[in-house]
């Protein structure tokens, strides 16, 4: 990794030094920069923050919004929590798999899409739901999935 990237990480850590629980904030912001959290970056964060790297790894793998492997330009996260499940999340996931030709956890060859499932997104009122990067989509069905994907395929 380049020297300048390490400096950027250090700056992010410095920014959250006063926070009570800075690790989550740091991981979030570092992920925004790198799109995912590579192993050496996690190790570097651990060392700089004086937190055991096993803890940093535990946190980074616990939350489904943290990625420890490279991801595509758009990360699609389909909610698999109970309310979405009841409202047909399985069908939504099937539709996405069909449309994208991907399985869970896979990234398309052109590097555009990554398909994942996630825990509750907190929008149970519009279940079944998914997120594409920062944007949330609810009341999904096969047709909506196709329409939404079309927006990102352009």
């Amino acid at each position: 990794m380049e020297e300048s990237l390490y400096r950027e990480i250090e700056e992010i850590i410095e920014k959250y030094r006063e926070e009570e629980t800075p690790l989550l904030c740091v991981l979030q912001e570092v992920q925004e920069k790198f799109h995912y959290l590579p192993r050496n970056v996690l190790g570097y964060i651990a060392k700089k923050m004086n937190v055991p790297s096993s803890t940093v790894y535990g946190v980074a793998t616990f939350y489904s919004f943290f990625e420890t492997n490279p991801v595509g330009e758009y990360v699609i996260r389909v909610c698999k929590s109970t309310p979405c499940h009841v409202q047909g999340a399985f069908n939504v996931l099937q539709a996405l798999k069909r449309e994208l030709g991907l399985k869970e956890g896979e990234t398309s060859k052109d590097g555009k899409f990554t398909l994942e499932v996630t825990s509750c997104l907190g929008v149970c009122g519009v279940a079944p739901a998914m997120m594409i990067n920062d944007v949330t989509y609810g009341n999904l069905n096969d047709e909506r999935v196709r329409e939404i994907l079309a927006l990102y395929r352009r």
Binding site: G43, P52, S53, S54, G58
Partner: peptide, 17 residues
């Protein structure tokens, strides 16, 4: 070592997997 992942996929993992 620490816990890694969540739910059914939880396992005890050495640092950084």
């Amino acid at each position: 070592i620490d816990f890694a992942n969540r739910g059914f996929d939880t396992f005890i993992s050495p640092s950084l997997g």
